[in-house]
Design a binder for these strands. Structure first.
Lengths: 207, 207
DNA sequence: GTGTGTGAAGTGGTTCACAGCG
DNA sequence: CGCTGTGAACCACTTCACACAC
């Protein structure tokens, strides 16, 4: 069955919330409670959860632990994904710190930078290679996903050469540039300046 | 006229693209060219641009410089917004570096952190205050927007106390937590772990 | 002929409303 | 009686298709 992007986004949040409810020892939760905590409509929550079978008990709610396990399975990976971060500026390092905790779903396998001052050593335990070695190392480490934290002017060139290797199937792009990628590559762009401009635009229109 | 969020998002990108086309000296551009460069359909581009009056010339395309100015006006701010960053970890500092360039639309006015090792001095030229002073300083500097880069467990508490001051009308949240805010506050959440999980989910479903 | 502007049609996602089950 | 599960109605955004201007 096909499952829509907004649904997956919410599913990840349900998963996170349910884990915290398990930790708190809550036994049962209703769609309304979940909705209130995550700012979704109760009907939305029910629809989302019903896509994956009937877990709730009518007149009662959803058993917290069982639902948490269930969502965990839906989001589970078939194997541990291999991730590379390209661009070890402040943002790249921040993301590395943020993602380097132990996680069964993925592992940061390599860092890349064009600055020789950063290459050749390990940063937070992850080897940092020079961009010249990118193709070789990406193939060697079978990188599945790259996180792009390079300047805007370099983003498209870097993306193109990364994708030429053929192992990379997804890109998380932080560069403020609208990348063009083949349609079989999954691209998510997180553009801070676009989001900020959006926010300022709506602020203006409310004043 | 009410203008939808996805439209604003594209508008910001048109603006950025048009600026680069002006710099390149391009005189005229068609909706198809814009669409190809940003991965939108040409019809989408035309519809978006037509919301704000007829700028294009039929049979020719859009005059680059004029369109760029026009979009600049649509996105222009009535005044310079005042922004605070709460949480001066790696991510907070990365964002500061990223946004501290001169910009007429906004200015980073204050940083806040709970760690006394960071407070009391200036970081990249911006004063860093202790969280205890938050309410006072936010009011004093008339902060319009806060960027939240605090740990998940602190996010809701911090957001609540920030909003109590009354000057803040928008939040850009980077904490991996689903914030609850009054509906007159504009909230944009950029949750890296959610985006990464989404990407991994769709990767799994393609394999 | 070429490319815009736009009403109409289409698509995808959300919300409603209620049947159905515990 | 309460809360889930779900088809139907609704809504928002996108795409089409074509008249119109250059």
């Amino acid at each position: 069955m096909r499952i829509a992007e907004p649904t997956v986004e919410r599913l990840v949040q349900y998963g996170r919330l349910l884990e915290s409810l398990v930790a708190k020892g809550k036994k049962v939760v209703s769609s309304k409670e979940i909705g209130d905590m995550l700012s979704f409509k109760a009907s939305q929550v029910r629809k989302d959860l019903s896509y994956f079978g009937e877990i709730g008990k009518r007149g009662v709610g959803y058993p917290v632990e069982q639902l948490s396990r269930h969502i965990g399975q839906i989001l589970a990976s078939p194997r541990q994904w291999s991730i590379g971060i390209i661009g070890v500026g402040k943002l790249g390092e921040a993301l590395l710190g943020y993602l380097s905790f132990h996680n069964e779903k993925f592992r940061i396998e390599a860092l890349f930078d064009a600055d020789c001052g950063k290459t050749g050593k390990e940063i937070q335990g992850i080897p940092c290679f020079h961009s010249d070695e990118m193709a070789v190392r990406i193939r060697e480490k079978a990188i599945d996903v790259v996180i792009l934290t390079v300047p805007a002017y370099a983003a498209q060139t870097v993306a193109d050469s990364v994708l030429k290797v053929g192992t990379v199937k997804g890109i998380l792009n932080f560069a403020p540039f609208a990348l063009t990628v083949p349609e079989d590559v999954f691209l998510i762009s997180m553009d801070i300046s676009v989001e900020l401009e959006k926010l300022l635009f709506f602020l203006k229109h409310k004043e």
